[in-house]
Design a protein around this nucleic acid. Structure first.
Length: 282
RNA sequence: GGCCCGAUAGCUCAGUUGGUAGAGCAGCGGAUUGAAAAUUCGCGUGUCGGCGGUUCAAAUCCGUCUCGGGCCA
């Protein structure tokens, strides 16, 4: 069974193009690993592969979720795993391509056996002041509290959520990746595209312009009943502000560029730690 | 031509009665175990427009020049 090949890298670095090259070379099929390209109705903003690109090799998991649904890394795993096995069973190589570090991490290292987030509990935790959440986590699981960034409400809530939903300490359930990394690293095959900052920034600027000229505004206007998840895609908030007349087009473009550059930087931070990825300068 | 206002970080600006400067944004670095294009932590990067003067000490006061903006001719 051909092992999967992973293609990572910051946004606008050229992952989709490289994926096509690898698919051709490895007799492969491309699987999306981007949290937002998963959604239907976000093709332009999420820079999903074009129809021409998709015609060059089988593409999977692009636009498969309704904008109104809320996905997460676990659900992605449930979609991607069977697909990978299916492709392998047919003797083809899965070429997993995307920039969502956590999703890729789940795929390559497997998730810890943690409970899925619960909407009701989340709403409750969201309404609680941060210091109260911290106090509660400290009481339930001091070990986890000590290793959690306590200023990060999202992280504190999640740790607490794990304790409350599972009835166990989060610190007892979490812990797995580090021990697996060494043995897995030898088996995993993949690369991370590297570009200089000026080059990457230029590509981002170019792509943002193309998006705005290529229908991104109409795409957002058509994006009704989107989940809170979808609303967070870079560009949605900015274009909504443009549509509302709060900012002009140039400002909108500048804001999208800045948000995209910041995102790219976070992705580089993430992939830098994935030592099994072979750097590919471009 | 005359008068007035402005010139401080990449950008927008703050800077008390003179004691060699600090916010936001941008940028850079980090974290990341089921919201991840999310969330979060850290870092000030500077001939204070130029030159001269007053003063122990000037971003700050005085003079002059340059460049913006405005008003009057």
């Amino acid at each position: 069974m051909p092992p999967p090949f992973y293609i990572c890298g910051p946004t606008a670095s050229g992952k989709s193009t490289l994926a096509l090259e690898m698919a051709a070379q490895l007799d492969g099929e491309i699987i999306n690993a981007d949290a937002f390209q998963l959604y239907r109705g976000l093709d332009i903003l999420s820079a999903a592969p074009s129809a021409e690109e998709r015609a060059q090799a089988p593409h999977h998991l692009y636009g498969v979720l309704e904008p109104g649904t809320a996905a997460d890394a676990g659900q992605y795993l449930r979609l991607a795993r069977p697909l990978i096995e299916n492709i392998q069973a047919r003797g083809k190589t899965p070429v997993v391509t995307g920039g969502s570090g956590l999703y890729l991490k789940f795929l390559t290292h497997g998730p810890a056996p943690l409970p899925t987030g619960d909407a009701t509990l989340r709403a409750e935790l969201e309404a609680t002041p941060l210091d109260a959440l911290v106090a509660r986590l400290r009481a339930l699981d001091p070990v986890e509290a000590a290793r959690t960034a306590l200023q990060n409400r999202r992280f504190v809530s999640r740790a607490l959520e794990i304790c409350l939903l599972s009835g166990h300490r989060a610190s007892d359930l979490r812990d797995r990746w580090e021990s697996q990394t060494a043995e897995l690293a030898a088996q995993l095959r993949g690369c991370v595209i590297q570009r200089t900052r000026p080059d990457l920034h230029a590509r981002i600027a170019c792509r943002t312009r193309a998006m705005l000229e290529g229908g991104a505004v109409a795409e957002v206007a058509a994006l009704t009943n989107a989940s809170a998840n979808c609303e967070k895609a870079i560009g949605v908030r900015q274009i909504r502000a443009l549509l509302a007349g709060e900012i002009d087009r140039t400002t909108c473009e500048n804001l999208i560029n800045a948000a995209t550059r910041q995102y790219a930087k976070r992705q580089e931070s993430w992939f830098r730690r994935e030592l099994w990825l072979r750097p590919v300068p471009r």
